[in-house]
Design a protein around this nucleic acid. Sequence first.
DNA 1: CTTATTGGTATGAAACATATACCAATAGCT
DNA 2: AGCTATTGGTATATGTTTCATACCAATAAG
Lengths: 261, 261
Amino acid sequence: MQDNSAVDQLNARARTIESVHAAAAYEVAADNIRRAIALGRFLPGDKLPPERELSEQMQVSRTTIREAVRVLEGEGLITVKRGALGGLVVMRPPSLGSAEMGAYLRTQLRLIYEILDFRTANECFAARLACGRRTQSHLDCLAELLGTMSGLCAQKAKREDVSNISQFLAADAEFHLTIAHAAGNKLIGKAVGDAHAAMFMPIGRVFKRLEDRANAHHETIYAAIRDQDADRAEKEMSLHIAATRKSLRNLLPPNAELSND
Amino acid sequence: MQDNSAVDQLNARARTIESVHAAAAYEVAADNIRRAIALGRFLPGDKLPPERELSEQMQVSRTTIREAVRVLEGEGLITVKRGALGGLVVMRPPSLGSAEMGAYLRTQLRLIYEILDFRTANECFAARLACGRRTQSHLDCLAELLGTMSGLCAQKAKREDVSNISQFLAADAEFHLTIAHAAGNKLIGKAVGDAHAAMFMPIGRVFKRLEDRANAHHETIYAAIRDQDADRAEKEMSLHIAATRKSLRNLLPPNAELSND
DNA sequence: CTTATTGGTATGAAACATATACCAATAGCT
DNA sequence: AGCTATTGGTATATGTTTCATACCAATAAG
């Protein structure tokens, strides 16, 4: 590895070792809780398990849990109520006017596009792998989620109900995660989970209604995996994520295109 | 989210929050150093920067660096010599007989195949993206690495020299990382780095000679990216990783096929 | 108005990390 | 031989984080 080469000029990375960012336990705890909420495991209005239980589940002292709770409270993600029937309650994200929403989305555009590309890479391949490895229980699980989702976007009224939208997004995340799980690859599974959790922050609070065809792609993806048609599964997944990208773009103010994509 | 559904049966994950694994600073430091070695930024026989310098670079106290050094020393990854011209020296991995090697590889097969699938997902897409985003400096960097690699596997004698093999693997990792970098997506870049680093532990110590065509795929990938032919870039990358898989399989004892792939 | 549930507070011990200073081995130079 | 520069090894005092435990305070149900 000689010096002054194109390699070294391009990458400042030669012979450099990344600096240490040791996450404190309470930060990791906050991340994990945030992730569970982002994936829709806990919906707005739901209560998290009580602190003492979280402490056990997460293998960390209650003190640490409480520090994490302070963080999430500060972010406006949960509220804390004392007393019996109190607890840690997941908040509903503030509903933004469509102008604010567009402006907000715009600041996040580059990140969102990166996440969508990352999802495309991993989820298309996951769909492909899943064709060869899915079991009947995977199919059952996917079918059930399809049912749930179609119920949630069946009528126009429901498609504009914030609570239904949250439930739909949760089932959607679970659907994609189940495919990644069926692919039987932990690295890809983790990547898909990370990507979905990362998307929630920018977009989870942004959809004000579901499209009536929101579930159509899921049906075709499911059919392809059921029929073990890997090429089709990959293709449909790719189209699905492209459609997600498009519907996000439609929420943007018209002048808001970046140099991306 | 009702109970007893197929979803909940399949995934123990509903309403469960991951437990906290807070890495201590010295573990993170050890990881970062290990990763740099795995990516070939430091080759066997090279010295790491002195402890005091690592301490500065990595933004952590010397005490912490020393704990990390103890870990890596214990793993046999580095040796420590005192005195002037002493320091932290990267060790050459023990050379295994081909029987031991096969047995070792076999225990790691499942992991290796997972990593290769993860690489396929991310690197094929990275190659595709890179076609649209690569700059001239990316191409220069890739070309230089091609030159380095072809020099390192030009003659039969060189292809069996352990030192050349290490250098080749380092350039190889850098080549793939540069493509990921050219793709301009941090998530994919990190995934590619993680995957390459994770592969090194099992296989870095396993190649005893380079094939004379070891660099052929790299040339075609480079050409496709240079010509901005996304389909070809993706296809060639896919073939390249498949070839890697195949040459690893050839190192296995004949009876060692798992249920994978 | 008692009881069960849940968050809030306090405290001391253990582990971890830092900063600083100094010791010890080693190679090269005079 | 001995000085010097470099580098790892050791010691210590301090501050922060995390933990385990115990107890306090608010709240709703019976």
